[in-house]
Each structure stands twice: as structure tokens, then as C-alpha cells.
Design a protein around this nucleic acid. Structure first.
Length: 459
RNA sequence: GCGGGUGUAGCUUAGUCCGGUUAAAAGCGCUGCCCUGUCACGGCAGAGAUCGUGGGUUCAAAUCCCAUCGCCCGCGCCA
């Protein structure tokens, strides 16, 4: 007999079917036993009676193959919570495909601390609410891809083994590369710029690696970066317009396809208002100072508490839970960032804050070869390290720029998750690669400096 | 790296400030028995904790002190 998905059984009333799945719960009434069978489509109630014998040894998370007849439930027994709530399967034969040990927690009503959630990731992911997080992430990524393609952007796959630290200075993971040095990419930045010289409009959905020793609720050492870059821009404002379209579409699409998932978290999609407000960093600092008397006006960046304050401001004044902040200081931005011609101390770059957290960074890039060379030298980086990248500019690069979105951060902000690690299937951080490094046996002796290369320390 | 907090059954927590009648308590889970209409089923009974680890103070430590390890949060940095 061909297997039928749980959700499809609605169409098989009074017919015999075979279903497969995991035991979500077991309700044993002695003479009659109910099993909730979970498969990728949903839950189906299995009735085992009058020979409850059939279900005797079956426990939660057992994997079963069940044959029987789909029958309409008595009307009083409908369950409106289930899509299959008006029917049930009367089991005639139950085949145990795999047994399961007792779970260390209640999977249906998952109430565990973050370390437990992640220590048992292979099973906690089976929880419906946890799955909803990744449905949202998947849909957000789909939406990004669709918008980019609609706007004429070509998709590419970025390399993640790179010869130099992309942003210069920032912390990167070093790898032993055939007795030489290589790094894990902090971002696909240089490659998307190179490809603007080929395709004009380019995007990628890729992984970025940051070796920042940061243990916070918003940092991962490996994260999903949604990156876009485009040539022939009229101004850096164009980039914010494109970025706004991307974000707006993500929220629209999630509104269409993920209502159920949002509801599980009692989450509402962030409001954008007519247009996402745009402020220069200095303006934002003045506003924060006026509102709170907290004087961070000399700070080269917005402090996390400032980001939350400016979010409140945007919400009150513009009805927007998002706000663009532009003109960050040149010193704080990477070498390729385009300085404002009117005030070169500041850049034509921007961040997009969503509910008080940066979810996007972008800006216009320097497309002039000579200026790039000068900048690399000024920052005491080596020209020879960038020769490959610089070809793209030496041989003609239009005015260009781009932006990148942090996928996990977007999901975190939408669902109001406490920690970005909840929004990553298998989060990596300073203390964890799947298992906690403190309990994993493969731990090398702790290295104090990242300049020591891995090959030197190997046996 | 710095600062703050925390560690009690498999999970989630109470008890810690003001040390001593609880031989450490509860909910969920687990085990056994009962139950033919439940849907996080219900009822009865039961098992399960060297209170993170090591040391100290005290007649007496989950509770106070020191050290150590784990974890969480904040900051720097950032998506």
C-alpha cells in the first residue's frame, strides 16, 4: 500500500490507507488508546480499539507505519485545533520502524533553558514552535531571492575560503591551507563587488564567519548573510530604496505565508510606515540627547541603548519600527566605503535598525581604482593582498554599492526571540560547535592568540 | 577580554537574604495499577537529588566564606 501523508487522509474517508510518522503523544484509556502521529504534514489521531494490544509498547517518538481505515469522528469528538480534527485512523496494523528512548524533556510543551535547547538540538528541532522559526527564516530567504531576481539581480555562490581578511583588522578565523595561510570569509563583499564588474546586479545567500570573541544575544560566529550589490547607481540613496523594497517584500511575504507561525509566537510583523525614516548618525545622536539627556554625541557609533532609543523615536514620530541611520564615520567603516564628498569624515553608508537592532548594513563603495589603492595604503594594508580584487576597478567599475542582511537577526527581531542562537538551526558561537566545547573531547589546548597558525600547533 | 548574575531530581522551578522539625518541596516527565472517546486525557500508588566541584567557618551548611568549573546577561565589536 502506498503511504499517504497525514494531511491527505482527509480525502480518504472510509478508505484504507497507510501512514507513517512519529508518535507525538499517547493517550491510554485502557480499552482504547489514542496516538497522535506526526509527519511532515501535520498530526493525525490514530485510534487503537478494541484490541488496544496493538499499541501496547508504543511510546513517544517511536517511528510507526500504520495501516487502517480513515473514519469520520463522532461529531462531539471533533478537534478544531487539528487540520485532521474531524477524522481519525482506526489502526488495523502497526509496524514499529524504530523505537525511541524517553525524551529528556516534554517535546510538545518545550520549556527548556537555552543550553538544553541547543545541547539537544537534533530533537528540540522536532518541536512545532521551534520549526516555525525556521519556516519563517526559509520564507524570508525565499522572499529575498525572489525580490532580487525580479529586480534583475543574478545569483552567485560566494567562496568562503579567502586569502585575506576582507574588512581588514576585524577578527577572522585562520585556517591551515596546505602549510600556508587562509581565512574563512567574513563576508562575500569583495566577490560581489568584483561581480558587479561582470553582471551589474548580483546577490548571494551565503555564510559569513566572524571570530569576534563576542558572547551576546545577537552574535554568531557563523551566520547567514543575504548580500546584494549593484552598479550604475545614481546615488547611495538608491541603495536604501532597494533595501527598503527587499525588506518590505519580506514582511509582505511572511504576512501571506506564515500567519500560523507568527501566531505561535504572538508576533506581529514590524510596521514600516509610509516610508522608512532616514537619519544621519549625528542627527540621531542629537535626538537621543534631547530625549534622554544622555550625551553620546561624540561617540563614533550608536551605542546599543541609543539604537533602542532611536527605535522608540521612529515608532512614535513616523509609525515605523525600522529606521535607516547613515553617515557613519569614515574611520569606523571598511576601506572600500565611499566618503561623503561634502564631509569626507563621514561615509555614504547606512545601517537599518529593526526594533532597535542592526539587521542591515550597506552603502556606496569607492569605485575609483586610485582612491582604493590610496585607502588600502592609508590603512596599512598590503596592496599585493588586494591585487586580485583591484583588477575589477583597474579595468572599469561603474558607481556601485550594496547591502547585506543578517538572516538570523531578522528572524530574531520579527519573533522577538531573546537570543539570536534560537534563530540558527545549528548555532556556532565561542563556546559551542553543536556540542559545548567545554565538554567536547576534541578540544585543542587553548590558544591565546589567533596569529599562531593551526599547523604549527598540530601534532 | 572586562563587569554583573547564576548553578537544587531527566526538564522547569521553590527553598538561600534571617544556617537547625522535610529524613530537601512542587509541576511536567518516568514506572506500576485502573479507565472505550481522549486530544498537553483522567485517577491511585511509586521511583528518582552525594543541592556544580573542592576546601573552610560552625555543635549544625542547599543556605555563610574562599577557590574552581559550567552557564546566562551586559559591554567592546557587529549582521
Amino acid at each position: 500500500m502506498q503511504r499517504v501523508l497525514n494531511i491527505e487522509t482527509i480525502k480518504y474517508i472510509n478508505k484504507n490507507v497507510k501512514v507513517c510518522g512519529w508518535v507525538n503523544s499517547r493517550r491510554d484509556h485502557g480499552g482504547i488508546v489514542f496516538l497522535d502521529l506526526r509527519d511532515r504534514s501535520g498530526i493525525l489521531q490514530i485510534v487503537v480499539t478494541p484490541t488496544a494490544e496493538l499499541a501496547k509498547d508504543i511510546k513517544n517518538e517511536y517511528v510507526l507505519e500504520i495501516e487502517g481505515k480513515i473514519q469520520k469522528r463522532p461529531i462531539k469528538m471533533f478537534n478544531p485545533e487539528l487540520e485532521t480534527g474531524e477524522i481519525e485512523l482506526k489502526a488495523e496494523n502497526i509496524n514499529i520502524l524504530a523505537k525511541a528512548e524517553t525524551l529528556p524533556f516534554d517535546l510538545k510543551d518545550l520549556n527548556v533553558s537555552l543550553p538544553v535547547l541547543l545541547d539537544y538540538r537534533p530533537i528540540t528541532l522536532r518541536n512545532k514552535k521551534i520549526q516555525a522559526i525556521f519556516k519563517i527564516e526559509e520564507e524570508a530567504i525565499n522572499s529575498f531571492r525572489k525580490t532580487m531576481k525580479d529586480l534583475g539581480f543574478a545569483e552567485f555562490q560566494a567562496p568562503t575560503i579567502v586569502p585575506v581578511a576582507t574588512e581588514g583588522g576585524a577578527e577572522v578565523f585562520h585556517i591551515d591551507y596546505f602549510n600556508g595561510d587562509a581565512y574563512l570569509a567574513q563576508s562575500p563583499q569583495l566577490y560581489k563587488q568584483i561581480l558587479v564588474g561582470v553582471f551589474e546586479r548580483i546577490f548571494t545567500i551565503t555564510r559569513a564567519y566572524r571570530a569576534e570573541p563576542s558572547v551576546t544575544t545577537r552574535h554568531l560566529t557563523e551566520y547567514i548573510s543575504l548580500d546584494a550589490e549593484m552598479g550604475f547607481i545614481n546615488s547611495w540613496q538608491d541603495l536604501m530604496d532597494f533595501c527598503e523594497t527587499v525588506i518590505r517584500n519580506i514582511f509582505l511575504d511572511l504576512g501571506k505565508s506564515c500567519q500560523k507561525e507568527l501566531k505561535l509566537f504572538s508576533a506581529t510583523l514590524p510596521k514600516l510606515g509610509e516610508k522608512i525614516p532616514r537619519l544621519k548618525m549625528k542627527e540621531a545622536q542629537e535626538i537621543i540627547f534631547k530625549r534622554t539627556q544622555r550625551d553620546n554625541r561624540e561617540s563614533p557609533d550608536l551605542e546599543p541603548e541609543d539604537e533602542k532609543e532611536i527605535y522608540e523615536f521612529a515608532k512614535e514620530k513616523y509609525g515605523s519600527e525600522l529606521i535607516f541611520i547613515s553617515h557613519y564615520p569614515t574611520k569606523k567603516r571598511p576601506f572600500y566605503t565611499f566618503p561623503d564628498p561634502k564631509d569626507p569624515e563621514y561615509t555614504l553608508s547606512f545601517d537599518l535598525l529593526c526594533r532597535g537592532l542592526e539587521i542591515v548594513t550597506g552603502g556606496q563603495r569607492i569605485n575609483d581604482y586610485e582612491k582604493l589603492v590610496k585607502n588600502i595604503k592609508k590603512r596599512k594594508m598590503k596592496i599585493k593582498d588586494f591585487k586580485f580584487y583591484l583588477q575589477a576597478f583597474k579595468y572599469g567599475m561603474p558607481p556601485e554599492g550594496g547591502f547585506c542582511l543578517g538572516a538570523e537577526r531578522i528572524v530574531k527581531q520579527i519573533l522577538d526571540l531573546e537570543n539570536v542562537r534560537e534563530a540558527s538551526l545549528f548555532p556556532r558561537d565561542m563556546a559551542r560547535i553543536d556540542q559545548r566545547l567545554s565538554v567536547s573531547k576534541k578540544r585543542n589546548p587553548r590558544r591565546k592568540t589567533s596569529s599562531l597558525s593551526g599547523n604549527k600547533l598540530k601534532k
